[in-house]
């Protein structure tokens, strides 16, 4: 159990049956008054933040949240299936949770999973991935603007903007946090 005075940024607590991470914490104490612990925390299931005030003897249950390495296996039509490479245990992740991330997934890709009561509630992709360009029209000749780009479709179906010199079959590095092209790794 935590007391309000133990709370700090990054601590995960359970509140009304849901896990929260503390994102901001302020101790205040008016004049001759009692200590007030003002906490901003993010619901790890919904992503919504809330603000609450507590007194020093309020108690909190730590949330049963842990992190583990997972390997992406396959999409079964409803869920994305990941495997713990140490125990070979499979975890199904709801498609909604992967909405913005699914186009970066490649078989056996290693990701960071967040586990809450034995359920994966969040998946963090590696910051950089390397992928093959499946389709991209050749750059228009004579276009010499230095930052000119063209659309390209990756092997996973991901669509991003790439520089004109990138060709089909090239392998490029992409920043998964911004969805931006970073560099060409190899050419066909």
């Amino acid at each position: 159990m935590y007391e309000a005075s133990d709370l700090k940024k990054g601590i995960k607590i359970e509140l009304e049956g849901e896990p929260y991470i503390i994102t901001d914490f302020e101790f205040s104490k008016p004049g001759k008054g009692q200590a007030i612990y003002r906490v901003r925390m993010k619901n790890l299931l919904t992503g919504y933040s809330i603000d609450k005030s507590y007194r020093s003897n309020d108690k909190f249950q730590p949330a049963n949240v842990s992190n583990l390495k997972l390997q992406y296996s396959y999409f079964d039509g409803t869920n994305y299936v990941f495997m713990d490479p140490e125990t070979f245990e499979n975890y199904s992740v709801n498609a909604d949770l992967m909405e913005d991330k699914k186009d970066y997934l490649m078989e056996n890709m290693e990701v960071d999973g967040t586990l809450y009561n034995e359920m994966v509630i969040d998946v963090t992709l590696p910051s950089f991935v390397e992928m093959k360009v499946m389709r991209s029209d050749p750059g228009v000749k004579g276009d010499t603007a230095t930052n000119a780009t063209k659309p390209a479709t990756m092997e996973t179906g991901l669509e991003i903007k790439v520089p004109l010199f990138v060709n089909e079959g090239d392998v490029i590095r992409i920043d998964t946090r911004t969805g931006e092209y970073l560099a060409r790794v190899s050419t066909k």
């Binding site: 205040s28 104490k29 008016p30 004049g31 008054g33 009692q34 007030i36 003002r38 005030s53 007194r55």
Partner: peptide, 14 residues
């Protein structure tokens, strides 16, 4: 209420 007095003091007034 003492808690309400202090909580509102730090959040709404100060």
């Amino acid at each position: 209420d003492d808690f309400q007095f202090d909580e509102e003091m730090t959040r709404l007034i100060e």
